[in-house]
Design a binder for these strands. Structure first.
Lengths: 201, 201
DNA sequence: ATCGTCATGTAACGTGTTACATGATTGT
DNA sequence: ACAATCATGTAACACGTTACATGACGAT
């Protein structure tokens, strides 16, 4: 019997949950997807397999050997209800004020998984929080300011400008996403996830 | 006597080197800067102090107790020549093709440190490589494509668009940086680092 | 027959996190 | 007198990386 204790998961574990929520997968399948994704989370076998075991031992996911096909049996993992709760909580968690730029990749990943897990309204709420975080972002927190360079060198100016441009792009994207999703909601009138999780390929 | 062996440093160690190359610092000072920087590298004392010891034991940095002021003595770290070599190598290392977006923060950090370490021409070369990497970036590598969604949902479209916008912003910034630095070079005619490292505040 | 891919693991290792501990100095 | 900040550490712990190992299956 798996323990019911819920703790905070690592980023890798949340990503695995997200992937499994789209479709049941084998460990090897998860490794392949993450390797091709070329994201900052590489997902080596030495990380994935132990993480799967951790999650299973806690009743967050389950696995059974897929003997359906004629091919060699392989272990298929799927998300259990506690895992779905954990994942959805994480997906709804807003981006925090000082970490928008640092967590941009993670936010897009969340947005990916959110399509299958959250309602359109929930995604819109998340985007609203995102927009507020962008607006209230305090540039003065950044490292180049902390270094208290006296004269504004070309480098310093460019670094500040990089942040500005990034923030503007982010703001523009969030607003576009809001517009499109609102239009989608009005068209479909969906109160549940936009797309159902797809079966395994 | 410190060992001469050079290995690849961790990101944290390179950041420490970069900070120390701007000005000698105490461990506490490094922690403070990194905490206020709110970047993805948090720099807890449990990471910084061991890292400083590691670097010192390898002859990459050195430290001596600063007894000059009336205040309580504190240990000041400074970069040694081998450390300067290591740092400069790292700074010159171009961004790799599939990792531009993931390493954006790191690239800006490098750009920060590069001001004090590299010549304008070297920075321009680094920016050229950056630009090429951006241009040759293959969007099809990204995770949302790997998931083989059949229909292009709104979410999918938005995710692709986020990447596009990000790449365009990056490209625009790189080109702006090139223009400004070239103008600066023509004005100053500098063949060495744009600014000398500043003394400790 | 062999090569590449599918598939699952494990062991050693280093490093970062969390939490704790200590004490001096400065400001109010 | 007290709190906040300066300043330096350490210990336990968990995680991810790297490298290795094994073997089945399908294609040529």
């Amino acid at each position: 019997m798996a323990s019911e204790r819920t703790r905070d998961l690592t980023t890798l574990e949340y990503i695995i949950l997200g992937l499994l929520s789209i479709a049941p997968q084998t460990g090897y399948g998860i490794i392949s997807v993450m390797e091709r994704a070329a994201s900052r989370w590489s997902g080596s076998p030495g990380a994935i397999y132990p993480a799967l075991k951790r999650l299973e031992s806690q009743g967050i996911i389950s696995s059974d050997v897929d003997a359906s096909s004629d091919a060699r049996p392989r272990r298929l993992y799927r998300v259990l209800p506690p895992g779905e709760r954990l994942l959805d909580e994480w997906l709804r968690l807003p981006v925090i004020r000082g970490a928008i730029l640092d967590e941009r990749d993670l936010s897009l990943l969340k947005f990916t998984f959110a399509e299958h897990r959250l309602t359109v309204d929930e995604v819109l709420a998340w985007l609203d929080a995102y927009e507020k975080a962008v607006d209230s972002y305090d540039v003065t927190q950044r490292i180049w300011y902390d270094m208290r360079m006296l004269a504004q060198s070309v480098h310093q100016q460019l670094l500040i400008e990089a942040t500005m441009m990034e923030l503007n792009t982010l703001r523009a994207w969030v607003q576009m996403a809001q517009r499109r999703l609102r239009a989608e909601r009005d068209r479909i009138g969906a109160a549940r996830p936009a797309r159902a999780a797809m079966p395994i390929a």
